[in-house]
Design a protein around this nucleic acid. Structure first.
Lengths: 208, 208
DNA sequence: TCATCCAGTTAACAACTGTTCTCCCGCGGT
DNA sequence: ACCGCGGGAGAACAGTTGTTAACTGGATGA
């Protein structure tokens, strides 16, 4: 019907996205290593064999999901980053950003937390690689802070990893608390804020 | 009375242990949610139907594994606990204990790290419950320290959770570094030591 | 306009899964 | 010495799995 260039590839990427979305949905209640090829195609509404047009295996699909999930995390890290200091107001703002991201992309957060130590090696490596990149980005931002004067590169990277791990841990904690329990959410938020404050305190006196 | 040392029940627990060990071995390269009943019995050298004499499902077996794995972690936490202070010597000792435990029980560490956020809800809850118990134990030990004077119970628990998470993170990091790379191991050990030192520094100035 | 390409389909394969029933046989209590 | 309990084996069940092959039909490029 339409000779518009790209309608072909557009449809292909559409079903590819349908497969990714279907998989992400199914991964809410299982791990990637138990995700079946047919299961995914069934949920996506396509024939089993169509899967091979996009991915070699479910592990391959998992690696693609890592990119998707970490892209959304990337945006949050950026916004969480700029105000990295100990001011109580900014810490609570950072925790709020994490909470908001968990609300906006719960499946992505769950996927990363679950498969970071999961049973599929290529996916583990892909996640680790991305988290290292994040830590380096955080380190670069920390280096700009006047408070980092006198810090070695290694120590800055160490602190960056600590922040990244803490953020992921907090996100996973938010994920586990049901959304209809605002008082529990507040408890988690205050716990995370205090942990960030303690790390910040350690940072302030690191060179003593 | 059923206090009979019975060769009967002894054999039963023997095959039960064989199932647990076989499962733990298989879980080195996959997640619990993809672990098959027949797969386990095959590796254990028993008939598939024998499985039901001990567990209702693989998820049930997973919960049993949590107990086993966390028992071994428990012992390490205890020994790591007593010298919780900032002396560089004791920190490196604690890190060494973690490294030693990973060497002694790699499968247990891997299982806990993997299934803590894994796809089987009952197992996740069992792990979380045990980790909460650990944190409370750590908190109790921290409370004995004269340095904790003036700390609120909530803050002590917060710090305890931070220590537990940090220990698990370190253990998982050791697990991922191949054992035949002593220089990489040393790098991980020093990273963990510095992170502990930073937390300890924050602790020392918490009440400022 | 027409031949080509290629995402998606249908059909079929052997292999594997969890679960039920039936049977076996050695230990434990009497 | 006997019988019953119960851990384990064996066979069979209907479903599901990943993967290959041959096919269809609409978009694509000359």
């Amino acid at each position: 019907m339409s000779h518009t260039p790209g309608a072909r590839q557009a449809q292909k990427q559409r079903t590819r996205q349908a497969l990714l979305d279907a998989a992400l949905g199914l991964l809410a209640e299982q791990s990637l290593s138990s995700l079946g090829l047919r299961e995914v195609t069934r949920a996506a509404g396509v024939a089993p064999t169509a899967f091979y047009r996009h991915f070699r295996s479910t592990a391959d699909l998992g690696v693609a999901l890592v990119g998707e999930a970490l892209d959304s995390l990337h945006a949050m890290i950026r916004t969480t980053l700029s105000p990295v200091d100990d001011s109580a107001r900014r810490i609570t703002r950072a925790v709020g950003l994490v909470a908001g991201h968990v609300d906006a992309h719960p499946a992505h957060v769950r996927f990363v937390a679950r498969e970071r130590h999961g049973g599929v090696q290529p996916v583990r490596e892909a996640i680790r690689e991305q988290l290292v990149r994040f830590a380096e980005e955080v380190k670069a931002e920390l280096a700009k802070d006047p408070r980092s004067r006198g810090w070695s590169d290694d120590d800055l990277l160490m602190l960056a990893h600590l922040y990244v791990d803490q953020m992921l841990s907090t996100a996973s904690l938010f994920l586990e608390t049901p959304g209809d329990e605002p008082l529990e959410r507040e408890r988690v938020a205050r716990l995370a804020a205090r942990q960030l404050r303690l790390i910040g305190t350690g940072r302030a006196h690191w060179l003593d």
